[in-house]
């Protein structure tokens, strides 16, 4: 499991984990993130059960377990949070922030010790160490209860499945050419995202944020200039195509 520090300012860090060369071929490559500030850290979409050991191993290179105080699951999918039953053994005092809609579903992954903190539909702001992070509504993108995470100090938006591209583990970390990258995203967004209305609402919200890095859960990350290009591209893209 590779770890890349994508932002660092004193004890405030964003680390991206992924591109695991040892992962089984049959499972989709995922990006996991950790935000650290002061003596607290939050894992964002910590991943599937298959990734638990390499992920925990990668995380413990940066932070001790008692400082991993928060988990975040953008939605209920297995590649997002099916490792919960094992994190439950490793981080018994942690809190899991996730859409209220999915609480009784996510608990099926096994959760006896970790506390579930439901995020209301309108989102919320959470103090983490010395910073504040915002859970931004991203409902129907693609899940019916879905949030992204925005850190206004680091100006990073963790955008879940929005901006995702299905690429190999040897893909570069950042998008370098949008024209070359959009074909890798098109089908994923058209098929997975069900609602044009939800898409436009999200684009409107994100345009109001100051985003230096957009960090999706699959594929490459976007730097500032490519974020704008992505929003324009996504705004025009018809989604929910399977029923046409």
């Amino acid at each position: 499991m590779q770890a890349n520090i994508i932002y660092e300012d004193g004890d405030h860090r964003w680390i991206m984990f992924g591109r695991d060369p040892n992962k089984s071929d049959g499972i989709i490559d995922t990006n996991q993130y950790m935000i650290q500030s002061g003596d607290q850290a939050m894992l964002l979409d910590p991943g599937g059960i298959e990734l638990f050991a390499p992920m925990l191993s990668a995380v413990l290179k940066f932070v001790p377990t008692d400082q991993i105080t928060h988990l975040f699951a953008s939605h209920q999918d297995p590649d997002i949070i099916s490792s919960l039953g094992l994190w439950d053994q490793a981080l018994p005092n942690a809190k899991l922030y996730s859409p209220w809609l999915w609480e009784s579903f996510i608990r099926h992954f096994g959760m006896e010790r970790i506390q579930y903190c439901p995020i209301p539909d309108e989102g919320l702001t959470l103090g983490l160490g010395r910073i504040q992070v915002q859970f931004i509504p991203a409902h129907y993108l693609h899940s019916s209860g879905n949030f992204h995470v925005y850190d206004p100090k680091a100006k990073i938006l963790m955008s879940g499945d929005v901006g995702a591209a299905l690429e190999g583990t040897d893909a570069p970390l950042f998008v370098d050419n949008m024209a070359a990258h959009t074909p890798k995203m098109r089908k994923f967004h058209q098929r997975w995202m069900p609602s044009n209305e939800a898409k436009l609402d999200w684009v409107r919200r994100v345009r109001q944020l100051d985003v230096n890095v957009m960090a999706p859960q699959h594929g490459r990350l976007f730097q500032k200039q490519h974020v704008t290009e992505f929003l324009n591209w996504f705004e025009e893209l018809p989604v929910g195509i399977a029923i046409r």
Binding site: L56, T65, Q67, L86, Q89, P92
Partner: peptide
Amino acid sequence: RANTAADKFQWIERQQLAHGESLRNAMRTC
């Protein structure tokens, strides 16, 4: 589940990680 977690913890223990020691309590409980 406890066995699965214990196997993963043992694997992690062998990595000699910077903060590996912090997992000690969770491992003992497991």
